[in-house]
Amino acid sequence: MPLDAADLDIPMRSAWLLLGMAGLVLLAISAAWALAIERAWGGRPVIPTRPGRPVPWGGPQVFASFFLWQFATLVAASLLRARRGPDAEPKLVEAMGAVALINLLVLIALPGLLGLWNRARASDFGLSGGGGRIGRDVLLGVVSAVFCLPLVYSVQFMAILIWPPTAHPLQEMLFEERSPWVMVLAFVSAVIFAPAAEELLFRGILQGWLEKRFGVTRTAIAEDRETDRDSIDLQPGLDPGVASLTALVVPAAIFALVHFGQWPAPLPLFVLAIALGLLYRRTKSIVAPIAAHATFNGLSTVGMIVLVLILPEAEPEAVPVPGPAEPGISAPGEGEAEETSGPPQAGESGHSEARSIRRSHPNVESV
């Protein structure tokens, strides 16, 4: 449903707020690009490369990590369906809360399991070196995300010229609930838990293992007596360029595919994932990718919240804001909610009917 004149009746104060936010984002993008150009012009690497030892886990542990993540997601989806009943409509707030809990479980359980299974340490995730290094990585991640915004959003807007966008479930929840607590839940889930859990899985665990397997950039630190170079299992006979590209593209492609329910979002998210992978490769830490991912999600979430506040009558499909990079739980199959919704009753608006139809989307809760 396109925006109409009533939807665009924005108070002057809100209009100035939007212009101010847009101006700040453009200023930040300009500063990030100027910094990158200045470093490249001076012959310095845009992102300095750090040494690091190969991660201790292997393929079975990578498979087990992703299996546990998906198993927890399926269990949560089954519990939500059982609680709703066969004819109930999806509850987006419940799904968002479940996704947040799953991501929190991932952050707690997987490092612990890898520590027990492979004696993984904080340094294997780049979480060592003191607060100074972590602070620098956070700043690097924020600047990198701002630098990539024009690239990611350009792909997003070119994609929606070809395919009609699917409203992001987080966006739908914000437009439907319009509660301060729902806004807090959306921010915590999309900006804190989701980036940390996904970067742990896709960059730290998966890409870290692929880089070890293909011998890309992770070399053992000489003074680390616990690392035996001869025991590192590298893929023989693979061209270094192919190995480097494979270790970068495979996690990015899988990351994009798990967001397939919000098509065409996987296209810009693939670009974002490549940038996150490069950050991880250069820093040997998940801190910078988490910060970059959180910055991207944060800007998207704040943009959605602002639009909810100033466009109270708009439908989420009419507002082409790129959604956060956050997959999650699937709703009932297509048509379930539509079969039970029926025509709008007396006193109900067309917006209610649109929400019922929109909720029938099979991925409406993929947050």
Score class of each variant (00 low, 15 high):
Arg229Tyr: 02
Gly141Lys: 12
Leu74Gly: 15
Ala220Phe: 00
Gly335Thr: 04
Glu334Thr: 08
Gly58Leu: 02
Val75Phe: 02
Arg225Cys: 01
Phe260Asn: 03
Val93Tyr: 13
Ala98Cys: 06
Glu89Met: 06
Gln207Lys: 01
Ala292Gly: 09
Thr340Leu: 09
Ala196His: 09
Pro51Arg: 11
Thr283Trp: 12
Pro86Met: 07
Val155Asp: 14
Val319Ile: 07
Pro344Ala: 07
Phe214Val: 02
Thr301Cys: 04
Val138Leu: 13
Gln61Tyr: 04
Ala291Met: 01
Gly97Asp: 13
Leu24Gly: 15
Leu311Lys: 06
Trp57Tyr: 01
Phe157Pro: 08
Asp239Gly: 08
Gly131Ser: 15
Met1Tyr: 04
Glu338Cys: 08
Gly237Val: 09
Ser144Gln: 10
Phe193Cys: 15
Ala220Gly: 10
Gly215Pro: 12
Leu17Gln: 12
Ala28Asn: 04
Ile192Val: 10
Asp224Lys: 05
Trp41Arg: 08
Ser244Lys: 08
Trp117Asn: 06
Phe63Glu: 05
Gly298Ile: 00
Gly23Ile: 06
Ala252Cys: 00
Ile305Gly: 02
Leu248Asn: 06
Trp41Leu: 10
Val249Cys: 13
Ala222Phe: 11
Met158Cys: 07
Ala292Tyr: 02
Ile329Leu: 15
Thr219Ala: 04
Ala77Met: 12
Ile37Asn: 09
Gly52Val: 02
Val93Ala: 03
Met173Phe: 06
Gly204Glu: 08
Arg133Met: 12
Glu317Tyr: 11
Ala159Ile: 01
Gly333Phe: 03
Leu151Phe: 14
Leu80Ala: 01
Ala145Gln: 15
Ala186Cys: 02
Leu19Arg: 11
Arg84Gly: 14
Thr227Glu: 11
